[in-house]
């Protein structure tokens, strides 16, 4: 697995959008500054999902939409979002990506941001052929509130060539296809997930009844 260099990224960005080897990153602002030798800086987008106090006694990751545990917030460019100490919000990159079929990516917190005790990812891996803005789990692990300005660089993306070369022409995955905002998670029922590995549904404890 080799890390793609700046010139390799440029070459892929110039390919036709229908070329499966092609890379799309848009909007690519200040490209000369954004592209480093082996990574590209990504900026913070303008939409967030902020946790709220749920009406439910618990949140069970299941097939029901998890929308009621978040409040959607839009912070226009030029304004800021305050993340209280020890709080986490979902954000997204400003850039929309189309990953090549043979390249994976890993997003990392930009080092200067990390030194402000902000962590942007706990699920940093991006699969080949992914389309969309990247959802960021932005955690303020410091003891003070931190201001985040959409449009500022927040992460860096590293690209890895997948070897041996995967099959071409595979269909796109429909989960999280082409998001431009952070999106609430998508789960199956725990019963279905567990049944798939042979756990009988009758053995599985249902969540407590909702109030």
């Amino acid at each position: 697995m080799a890390v793609l260099t700046k010139s390799a990224l440029w070459d892929r960005m110039k390919l036709d959008v229908s070329d499966e080897s092609g890379l799309v990153i848009t909007p690519l602002l200040q490209p000369d500054e954004a592209l480093d030798t082996d990574a590209i800086d990504l900026r913070l987008g303008t939409h967030f999902l902020v946790p709220r106090i749920s009406f439910q006694p618990y949140f069970c990751p299941d097939d029901r939409p998890g929308k009621d545990v978040y409040t959607r917030v839009h912070i226009p460019l030029g304004k800021y979002l305050v993340i209280p100490a020890h709080q986490t919000v979902l954000g997204a990159t400003l850039e929309y990506l189309k990953m090549p079929y043979d390249v994976s990516g890993q997003i990392l917190t930009k080092s200067s941001v990390a030194r402000a005790f902000i962590v942007i990812e706990t699920a940093p891996w991006i699969h080949p052929s992914y389309r969309g803005c990247l959802t960021l789990e932005i955690a303020n692990v410091s003891n003070t509130p931190v201001l985040l300005y959409p449009g500022r660089a927040i992460g860096q993306l590293v690209f890895f060539r997948v070897e041996p070369e995967p099959e071409k022409g595979l269909p796109l995955k429909s989960t999280y296809l082409g998001p431009i905002y952070p999106e609430a998670p998508s789960f199956k029922k725990p019963q279905d997930d567990l049944a798939a590995i042979g756990i009988r549904k009758t053995w599985i404890i249902d969540p407590p009844h909702e109030v």
Binding site: L15, D16, V17, V24, Y96, K98, R131, G178
Partner: peptide, 12 residues
């Protein structure tokens, strides 16, 4: 761009 699931803000 759309046919490939891509936001068409940059086109080569």
């Amino acid at each position: 761009a759309f046919a490939n699931g891509v936001v068409p803000s940059t086109i080569y």
